[in-house]
Design a protein around this nucleic acid. Structure first.
Lengths: 192, 192
DNA sequence: TCCCTTATGAGAGTACACCCTCATATTTGT
DNA sequence: ACAAATATGAGGGTGTACTCTCATAAGGGA
């Protein structure tokens, strides 16, 4: 990871500096109130350079589509779809270090706090939803647009989203554990 | 409703003209590619006047938080939460005319297509979720932050959202009916 | 009819994301 | 050590949402 020439390392460091300073400023004065010029100045690069690293300001916060989930989903043993998805979430979280989860959470807090960022993230959600739906359909041998699969995916992600929202507001919460419990609840038919 | 002085009527007409022309332009050239100046010109008002009617461009598309749902929810007979929510959706849709549903759908298509608008709509979603959660908690006599209620709300809205997304892409679909079927499926434990 | 309130237009002005160009500095391969 | 490739800075430029001010016009009540 630390390999590559000096150029690569400098680029990576610049990139991290920009990210770090940007999030610091976001935290201090909010996303909208922070201008690109301010971020550039704090990171000691020119505004032009900022845009060479991040095409848009939103890209600072756009995260990748949680690839571990897809991978974990493929590796799940057979079972009812909700259980399979629950297992996938569990496996995916287990594959991350505590630091990774914490970092992801910090970013997530922004993403759920600032609507513009939420939208930037959501922009790629349909793709994830489709992919998950596709995998589940393949596994169960049903059609891709089987409404039942669609409903399962919707319900699961709805539950996860709601836990996520709550986690963003209550940092003391154990997010992954809470997700698992919530999915167990869904699995058992949302009983009271 | 058509009462009031001439002033009121003119204002209402101006407002509708702006909305109509704006959506026409959006349809023709897209949301981002349509400037406020163009909308103002098409509606034959000055740009300044545009902003007197709509504080921001996004407000053209921001819809109210589907008030019929809240109302219908309060009026539901007692029962398990998922069934109550399902009934609320059914009642809410029934209270709307076909035109209203179609208009809402058209607007929805924009809202799911253009990220900026998605953000504008999402901005009020947490409020709706909280309100629905609150009502359900009151009805069942449980605490507002009872995870079970939270999970139910998440699952229901997740399912509805997924149907909604599909509806936005397939205008031939009977949205309300599909929502009802999907919620019935959820109610029965997402069986395959 | 006269006055008061309010809506509008005109137009200049601001803020900020994002682009372009070109000169300079830094790194890499030879 | 040198040349080619590339990263950066400086700084000017653009588009567009949104604001402000002020003069004019239009509606409403007496």
């Amino acid at each position: 990871m630390s390999g590559g020439g000096l150029r690569e390392r400098k680029k990576a460091r610049t990139r991290e500096t920009i990210l770090r300073e940007a999030f610091r400023l976001f935290r201090e004065r909010g996303y909208n109130a922070t201008t690109v010029d301010q971020i550039a100045e704090a990171a000691e690069v020119s505004p032009a350079t900022f845009f060479r690293y991040f095409p848009t300001k939103e890209d600072l916060v756009a995260r990748d589509a949680f690839p571990p989930l897809i991978e974990a989903l493929r590796a799940q043993p057979p079972g009812p779809p909700v259980a399979v998805l629950r297992g996938a979430f569990r496996t995916a979280f287990a594959s991350l270090s505590a630091e990774e989860i914490a970092a992801g959470h910090a970013r997530e807090v922004f993403a759920t706090t600032v609507p513009e960022l939420l939208a930037a993230n959501l922009r790629r959600s349909p793709g994830v939803l489709r992919e998950v739906t596709q995998i589940l359909a393949d596994r169960t041998g049903s059609d891709t647009d089987d409404p039942r699969i669609r409903n399962v995916v919707g319900a699961v992600f709805g539950v996860v989203a709601v836990v996520w929202l709550q986690w963003a507001q209550d940092p003391g919460m154990d997010g992954p554990a809470e997700v698992d419990m919530a999915l167990a609840h869904l699995e058992s038919g949302l009983s009271l």
